[in-house]
Design a protein around this nucleic acid. Structure first.
Lengths: 157, 157
DNA sequence: TTTGGTGCAAATTCTTTGCATCTCT
DNA sequence: AGAGATGCAAAGAATTTGCACCAAA
């Protein structure tokens, strides 16, 4: 069994957690998509409903929501952190070209875990697993994310 | 079988790669340790032998060395990237408290890979797996890396 | 010689924070 | 009322880059 860690909910399993409009919309938008957006992408999604929201608030809320186990902060490869509206542990696939990230419909592997547990002095609490490869689209169009951005001028701001 | 990806060596499998003193020392120091140091830690290690080296050069060379498959750039959790002098794919354990990272003496899992390959539209090229837990030391001394830094003033510069 | 590497510093990018003000409960 | 959230802007941290000079092949 894998434990997803988070500070707050560990110290205080049922803290009340005030639901502000901003927090609600962030959670809502994140649950609406199956992609695994970055803070910046979430900021843009949320801004359509709350034009006045600040990026700082988005970051603060993503932190709080993941501390409370309501979402997942994915700390895997890539320079930007990504967030997942589904707090349950599951595996991901990431495309090496466009950096798209999908869920993997695969159950977790208990055999793997028990093998680990005895092979080192660590107390194993969980693991992070991410597959890398090419998504269906990129198998056809061999173009990196950066190349696409450079071409389209698709950058923040 | 898992393929470790790297740009240059893919495009040009046997480019000559000029060996400057700086590059040599960086590679050398990185091979000397079994830890998985950050760029900054490597900078400090190398500086003892080459006092004039710049952090920018360290970053540039780590990039080049990993592009050439001579080292590994580990893009797993944590805000700082880590580098591994062993370019062969292997698993890691990371301590949630002090962020120490060790190798896991465990062979890779072919069964896992074939299971993945058919479960999604991706062309799977490899994967990244990292275990998280508590290292032997931290099981005894429950103190986070940040707490220790704050106490000791052990920060860069 | 010439192509690529280096040091330095400034620039970028992503994320966090201080503060005065506001808002949920 | 009051703890906690917000917006704003500035600060931080990690990494990348432009440029003039230097060095390995």
């Amino acid at each position: 069994m894998v434990t997803v860690m988070n500070k707050k909910s560990k110290d205080n399993p049922k803290l009340p957690l005030r639901m502000t409009r901003q927090r609600q919309v962030i959670l809502d938008e994140l649950r609406k998509v199956t992609s695994h957006p970055t803070a910046d992408e979430i900021y843009n999604m949320v801004r359509r409903r709350l034009p006045g929201i600040s990026l700082g608030t988005v970051y603060r809320n993503l932190e709080i929501l993941s501390d409370n186990g309501m979402i997942q902060k994915l700390e895997l490869s890539g320079s930007q952190r990504r967030y997942d509206g589904n707090p349950k542990l599951h595996y991901h696939v990431r495309c090496v070209r466009c950096e798209r990230m999908d869920d993997l419909p695969l159950s977790t592997l208990p055999a793997l875990e028990s093998a680990i547990r005895k092979s080192c002095g660590y107390e194993v609490l969980g693991y992070r697993l991410e597959f890398i490869g090419l998504c269906p689209k990129c198998r056809k169009f061999p173009e990196t994310r950066k190349e696409r951005q450079d071409k389209n001028g698709t950058k923040r701001k």
